[in-house]
């Protein structure tokens, strides 16, 4: 640390010229000190004024603009995101509501259809029952009718057969009585 000490001594004692000569340092030659200080002050003040008045505000503006732009863009993006999220929520709500509606409609329709089917089934069943009943009555009537005609036919055949075998005319009422008793015995079991 010899150098600073030397300089300090030079400054304090004002004998810089001597020391400069000894150390061979042009820095300690005071010949142009005032000139250097003067031009330094002039040039630095000019530079400072230029930088402070023109360049710094410009750079600041440019950086500020960029930051503002980024901020605005981010804000815009967030806003849009929020809007889209809201829309999604709305959409999901809509879907849910419609699902419920759909379920209700399908349930209602099913019930209605079931009811309708039940009604129609009943109607058809009763119709079928009617038809069946009618058919049964017809069958019964037919059976009764056919039984009477059978007896008649049996009587005719029996009297005819007996006539052919015996060449005798039978009493009509006795034949009828026999056929009737036999048919009651036999056909009754069939009916």
């Amino acid at each position: 640390m010899k150098l600073p000490i030397l300089i300090l001594i030079a400054l304090i004692l004002g004998q810089s010229r001597i020391i400069a000569a000894e150390a061979g340092m042009p820095q300690l030659n005071p010949e142009y000190w005032l000139s250097q200080s003067f031009w330094l002050i002039i040039i630095f003040i000019t530079l400072y004024a230029l930088i402070a008045k023109f360049f710094i505000p410009k750079i600041k503006l440019s950086i500020g603009d960029r930051e503002r732009k980024i901020k605005d863009d981010l804000d815009e993006a967030n806003k849009l995101k929020k809007i889209s999220e809201d829309k999604i929520k709305e959409y999901e709500k809509l879907i849910l509501e419609n699902k419920k509606k759909l379920m209700k409609i399908s349930n209602d329709t099913k019930k209605k259809l079931d009811l309708d089917i039940q009604k129609k089934k009943k109607a058809i069943e009763s119709q079928i029952q009617n038809e069946l009943d009618k058919a049964q009555i017809e069958i019964d009537n037919f059976k009764k009718g056919s039984l009477a005609s059978i007896e008649q036919v049996a009587e005719d055949i029996a009297s005819k057969v007996v006539e052919d075998l015996t060449n005798e005319k039978l009493n009509q009422s006795s034949v009828k009585a026999i056929v009737s008793s036999t048919s009651k015995k036999r056909i009754g079991s069939l009916l």
């Binding site: 010949e31 142009y32 005032l34 003067f38």
Partner: peptide
Amino acid sequence: DLSFTNSS
């Protein structure tokens, strides 16, 4: 002396 020097 305020001459313009090489330093200036």
